[in-house]
Computed example of a mutant assay.
Amino acid sequence: MFEQARPHRFPPLSQVRSLVTTTEAGAAAPVAGQLQAAVAAGFQEGLAKGYQEGLASGREAALEQGLREGRQQGRQQASAEARREGQALLEALATPLEAMLSALKNQRAEYQSAQRKEVVELVAKVARQVIRCELALQPTQLLALVDETIATLPPARDEDIEVFLNPEELAQIRELDPARAERLQLRADAALAPGECRVRAAGREADAGCKQRLTACMEQIEQQLGASEEDSLPDADDDLLRAAA
């Protein structure tokens, strides 16, 4: 009735474990592959996205820098062009400006010369009137001029010195100072104007009159007036050039 029972042998535990490990490894292999593919895809996507973002950012920065450099270069070019135009304009105005300044300088010099001449003539006129009045009141003052002139000549005896005077003044001197008139050899010369006299001594002759002294004095006054005007008056050329600048 009953079949004879056969004993069952379980496989070794190490074999069971090996079988389980192999099964789990086989089941996990597809999952690992999918995970690796997903990671690779994400990496590529991130790389592409980063590249695009970096490219866009680089383009924006490059555009901004280009605009900034372009504006700076444009300002420099505009400034250089403005300087060139200004220089050309100044050069175009230089010729008529120089001619105008030269004419102005000549006109100013002529005006100053005429002004100095008027002043000198006025002073000389007043001086002549004063001298004429002084000699009319004291004609013996001519003898002081004679003594000064004799001192510049080589030494000579009184009897060898001749003084030529206007006849009217000679008569007045002999009347007012006969002692001095006797000391010198006074001679009348109708060609001499009042206030003029000549001295002759040791073969030399000198002018002892008032005219040549007044002329020398007026020349010194004119020179001093010219020097003072040049020092005190500003240069019109420099003023106009500074104003143009």
Rank of each mutant, 00 (worst) to 15 (best):
D235T: 07
A124G: 08
D160W: 03
L176T: 05
N166L: 02
P167Q: 00
L233W: 05
A37P: 08
N166E: 00
Q115R: 11
R6E: 14
M1A: 12
A92F: 13
E169L: 03
R6F: 02
A124V: 07
Q112Y: 04
R187F: 00
P154N: 07
C217M: 14
T23S: 14
L104K: 09
L47E: 15
E148T: 05
L93T: 06
D235Q: 09
Q52D: 14
A25G: 09
G50L: 15
R108F: 08
Q77Y: 13
A28E: 09
A29M: 10
K105D: 13
K125D: 07
G195T: 01
G209I: 00
E85V: 12
L184A: 03
Q220P: 06
A82E: 12
V123M: 05
L184V: 05
R116K: 04
S14A: 15
M218Q: 07
A37E: 04
A144V: 11
A193P: 03
A88Q: 15
L90C: 10
A88Y: 13
R6S: 13
R116I: 12
P30N: 05
E64C: 06
A25L: 12
A61Y: 08
V20Q: 08
L240C: 06
R128S: 06
A190H: 01
E222W: 09
E3K: 07
R71I: 11
I221Q: 10
R242V: 11
A227K: 05
A151R: 10
A48D: 12
Q87D: 07
Q72K: 11
I131N: 04
P7E: 11
E134K: 08
R242N: 07
A191T: 09
E118F: 10
G203V: 01
E91V: 09
L90T: 11
L35Y: 10
G70L: 06
G66N: 11
Q15N: 12
A109G: 04
L89S: 09
A25P: 01
R108L: 12
L143R: 00
R6N: 08
P167V: 01
Q138R: 14
G46L: 15
R128G: 05
Q73W: 06
L214G: 00
E169Q: 07
E91P: 04
A40I: 01
F43Q: 13
T152A: 14
S14W: 12
P12D: 15
L135E: 04
V199E: 00
S113A: 07
A114H: 08
I161Y: 00
R84H: 05
E85Y: 10
Q185P: 01
T21A: 15
L19P: 00
L101D: 03
A32V: 10
R187S: 02
E91Q: 15
R200K: 12
P167G: 02
L89M: 11
R180H: 08
Q185K: 09
Q212W: 12
A190D: 01
A202L: 08
A109N: 06
P11Q: 04
